[in-house]
Design a protein around this nucleic acid. Structure first.
Lengths: 176, 176
DNA sequence: AGCTACATGTAACGAGTTACATGATTAT
DNA sequence: ATAATCATGTAACTCGTTACATGTAGCT
């Protein structure tokens, strides 16, 4: 599985502490991988044991010390091997859709409110992504290969949120 | 979590054996919930223990006996309670996007091929959903509330696959 | 003779969630 | 005062995957 690899990929660009990784995974990397703080710390422990990453304690003033992790050569090899394996589509497990199938058990307003709530969540997230698109990827012709790849992950997030928004609107129109 | 509820919802409409549920979850219910055979059997065991479902052994000729499960009144109550709880959006964990972030470590052809492969997967799945849409939901004006809800889950699947196809095409165009 | 479909399960392991535990600094 | 941010972890539990185990019927 791939939290391991998501961490390795992130450490491939620069060093992070567990806490920094967690923030990155909750904010920036939201559109491709989600992970909790505890999961990240556990995975970092495993990766260090097997030698794919190495850590260095960085003392800080007025703050707790932090353990900065960096990827090792062995870690890079591991990544390369993994990159060649085919990537499976994510398993779909969408609670809201399961609820729709049983919607006749509760008042219509319950379901409509759930859909409305989702519409808000996705609208908010889309705005975050679109802002980032404008700020960081305004000039597409100037992008390097690496930046293009990064941009495409953001585009996937934008399409995902847009698709949900369109569905929510269709659903509200159909059920109202 | 919600495999429990996905099973209860499915048994709400008619009785199924574990094997039937597995087929349903691999084919029909693919666009809202995925589950393996083993997971379903385990969950059925738990649900029966707690009294949310009940089973009856049905002898068959030329085939192994099967255990038909049905939902109990207690199970229906459990479902209703759950329907009122807010539904969280699914956690995004998309391997292909993680690979894109590290794409510079391998030849471009590797990534392009992975995207092409995804394009095929989603195109195929979209065709399945669209066929079902035409076969079962051709006359929207005639649909009952329950059927509309069911139709909307299919619409979500169609939008999901279409969104992926559009992204794959964008990605191929940008990286080629 | 070998493959697919039907049918149900156990066991081990890996991944993800929730709760608990600690402690300093900074902002309201 | 108290909440939020920074910082790292352990423990218990649930959920999801993979491997193992068994046996019949029908098709090629």
């Amino acid at each position: 599985m791939a939290l391991t690899h998501a961490i390795l990929v992130t450490l491939g660009d620069e060093s992070y502490s567990g806490y920094d990784l967690w923030k990155k995974f909750s904010q920036t990397s939201r559109y491709y991988w989600q992970a909790s703080q505890q999961q990240i710390y556990r995975e970092l422990g495993k990766l260090e044991k097997e030698g794919a990453i190495a850590s260095e304690v960085v003392p800080q003033e007025g703050r707790p010390d932090k353990k900065l992790y960096r990827i090792t050569d062995q870690g890079v090899e591991k990544l390369k091997t993994w990159l060649l394996e085919p990537a499976e589509p994510m398993a779909v497990r969408e609670e809201l859709l399961v609820k729709l199938i049983a919607a006749n058990l509760v008042p219509k307003s319950v379901i409509l409110q759930q859909i409305q709530s989702r519409l808000q969540i996705h609208s908010k997230q889309l705005l975050v992504y679109k802002t980032k698109e404008q700020e960081k990827f305004s000039d597409l012709a100037q992008l390097s290969y690496k930046q293009k790849c990064h941009y495409l992950t953001l585009r996937c997030g934008i399409r995902y949120e847009s698709s949900w928004i369109a569905w929510c609107e269709e659903a509200i129109a159909m059920l109202s």
